[in-house]
């Protein structure tokens, strides 16, 4: 067991984990944050996307011990404290950017990252930016529209979390 301390959705947590524990497993099974889902075994689908120190990662392909000392934001940490949806969440709702909804947490987290890097992306840039997120329902057109809607709203799509400069 290895002790880790990190901030998840604004809350400081400390836990003992086996080194082999994946970040997604830790979030879901130890913290009960089941908003982040697992959609594949190969790190292709992006359903598990969260932000680690301010940039998007596939949480099935990061060990929990690698996140020690970091700041993690999941889809559950996007909405305001009063429940106001994040502008990207709002845009997915508005544009019906989902069908079954399974890919949605990852799509939303990757969109927040994409818009932080490029606030006014072309359609091509959106499709490339979401390349690592698969939608089994293939509802890509409305997903792209939702991203455009969120960008057009010119809203606060700041990256979540603190940029610690570790990857900068």
């Amino acid at each position: 067991m290895t002790r880790i301390s990190l901030t998840v959705d604004g809350q400081q947590v400390t836990d003992d984990v086996e080194p082999r524990t994946l970040l997604v497993q830790y979030l879901r099974e130890q913290l009960g944050k089941t908003g982040t889902v697992i959609g594949c075994d190969t790190s292709n689908c992006g359903a598990c996307t969260v932000h680690l120190d301010g940039t998007s990662v596939k949480s099935c392909n990061v060990l929990a011990v690698q996140a020690d000392g970091s700041e993690v934001t999941t889809v559950e940490g996007l909405a305001g404290e009063d429940g106001t949806l994040h502008p990207v969440q709002e845009a997915f709702r508005e544009c019906h950017g989902l069908q079954c909804g399974f890919c949605t947490p990852g799509m939303i987290m990757q969109t927040v990252d994409l818009l932080a890097e490029n606030p006014d992306p072309s359609e091509e840039a959106i499709r490339l930016g979401l390349e690592g997120n698969l939608c089994r329902c293939t509802g890509y057109h409305n997903i792209v529209r939702a991203v455009q809607h969120a960008a057009g709203a010119g809203s606060d799509t700041e990256r979540s979390g603190q940029d610690t400069g570790v990857t900068a």
Binding site: S43, G46, T49, L52, T55, S56, V57, K58, N61, V62, Q110, D113, L114, G129, E131, G132, N133, T167
Partner: peptide, 9 residues
């Protein structure tokens, strides 16, 4: 190379 999430790590 790969996708945005993979390029971040």
């Amino acid at each position: 190379l790969a996708d945005a999430q993979v390029r971040h790590r």
